[in-house]
Design a protein around this nucleic acid. Structure first.
Lengths: 195, 195, 195, 195
DNA sequence: CATGAATGAGCTTTCATTCAT
DNA sequence: CATGAATGAAAGCTCATTCAT
């Protein structure tokens, strides 16, 4: 009862994320969510216009969190190649440690995404720019990522996304050492500097 | 009515695939499906024990089709590297040209996959072996893919899957040339033979 | 295959009875029944106009079997009191050993009974007459059961029916010895001849 | 609409009982019930978790009512034999005047009963104890019903149940005087005190 | 700020039955 | 004698959402 009124909105989002990862997408109904939180379904509508809005809030959170992690990773002062490595690891770490956000951000069925406000969505893609910049730098074109760099960034992005989504879906051979798998994947696009 | 009653089962599967890609997963209810096909919901149950069975039939079809394409691609007589390239292209081609199958095979919500018979599922993973073999051959270990080759195969697989799923979800920068994007991605893991 | 065509009607009734007792009333659907028998649902309709007719056939069988058992029991040459005892035991035996018939004859929901042809139904009540006759004889009015005898017969009948139906429904205290219970019940209406 | 919204739950139960006795068990579907009551099927689920819960609520009511009637009947200060007579009459009265409760308590198909919480069920059997006590007292063993008394109680119970269920099912000869029938039945197990 | 009551649309699935062959 | 294909009706139940309070 004590802290029960400290921002119901917050608690709803928390519970939603939790449910999403522990019981899956279909279990996330407004009523069940309300039950878990300890309020009525109606109350959720005080904070979110509808279910979509709730999802979008989760996506916003997720994008923010990923952004933050990439900023941190991108701040390392060393070589561009190391920065790229850090960025990749940050992304993988984010995906694997926050499956609920990853699910909602990248795996959710398009029906929800279609209604996600385009402006916010564009914002999301900015995260990609971090990779482009590191790649540009590595190629000796600091702070001015070219079309080519962006192309490469998308490739990196796709590879990372593929790895995370297969892992989250439990579709990578279990006998594989996960760290080794990810390292190999990352090495793929971080070419050793030719001496 | 009796329409072209030759194969209602066939028509159901067809429509299911179509609906899946055009209106999404949630729009695929037994009733709506029946409506689109032009029969009653009950009739569907004459051909599929339940909704799961229908999904599994789609998955089976998809796995078969992909398998077939990979077999074709794997038959090229040339160098292993070329074969690898062909396999990759076959996979990408399959994914992009048959989004409905790809959706149902790789993007479908896990609830359905969990109930997918394990034996068939294992069969699906055999497709991965094609890549492992080409990679083994390329590394001079023909027909005996080692652990290392399988690791690499998984990495390739993840990259390809990442690319396809981002493209299907419309999440790759539209200004990017798609062919170029895919080529770049594929080159990533096909190292040029050092002279 | 060999004896498979020896009267499908017979096999349907057999299976219906079996299903009724092993899986209950609601499990007795035309399709499931057909499945168990090894024919199509449609085939059942060759032998029975509808589900009601099938039930009625079962009831007929049951009535016949009970009749037969009561005839046998009523033939004992001894004292009327012994005959009454035998009749009671025959009834109890019938009910407990043929729960499927008992169910269908006495416990089935009235919806089905209402449509049971009245003439056959009356025939069923003839079984009651056996008791009336034994009671009449015991009271020194052989072969001419009076109204009073019939009243008494109904009482006996009710008691027996109560016992059987409670036992079949598993609603008699399990710690009770069943034989003792039934004996006590029967003794209740077979007054010892005053010396 | 808001009708007499005071107690929809109450109205649902009322209507359920009514329908049960007038149209039978199978006519009691959630939708039809809702229609009769004047609400939507969904609304019923606001008051009862599912159909079972609704049935169980009816059973609870019935058990309570019977209990109450037996308590009243058991309070008569006179002889044990009279008390026994009162108890029997109370039971018969309950069954014949509340066929809907009787149906739901004793004649309902076992599928529903199986799921009836065991604890409540045991409570139901306590009603039997009233008879055991009266019988014990009559036999000169006040307040300490022996095994024998309980056996006898079950016999009484079976007889009463048989009578009620035959009467409710319309299976007792209509030409019979009902009161006479019941009196005769009751006399059967209330032996006159030997002078 | 929060609720209780209610709803309409929709879900998957099962049923008894029919009809052309 | 038997089937395969199909159906309309109905079942129990859950969903997102609304509205008066």
């Amino acid at each position: 009862m004590a802290r029960s009124s400290t921002n119901l909105r917050y608690r709803i989002l928390n519970q939603a994320r939790q449910t999403l990862v522990s019981e899956g997408y279909r279990a996330l109904s407004m009523r069940r969510l309300a039950n878990s939180v300890g309020c009525t379904a109606t109350s959720i509508y005080l904070y979110f216009q509808n279910k979509d809005a709730l999802f979008h809030a989760l996506i916003d959170e997720g994008i923010g969190l990923l952004h933050q992690k990439l900023v941190q990773a991108g701040q390392s002062a060393g070589q561009a190649k190391d920065r790229l490595q850090d960025l990749a690891e940050a992304f993988l770490d984010f995906g694997l440690k926050n499956p609920e956000y990853y699910e909602v951000m990248f795996l959710l069925h398009p029906e929800h995404m279609e209604r996600y406000p385009a402006e916010k969505y564009r914002k999301a893609r900015e995260n990609l720019e971090f990779f482009a910049q590191a790649l540009a730098e590595d190629a000796g074109r600091p702070q001015n990522p070219t079309k080519e760099d962006r192309l490469q960034a998308n490739v990196v992005w796709a590879s990372l996304h593929g790895a995370v989504s297969l892992l989250l879906a439990g579709r990578v051979d279990v006998r594989l050492d996960q760290k080794l798998f990810l390292n190999t994947l990352v090495k793929q696009f971080i070419q050793p500097t030719s001496p």
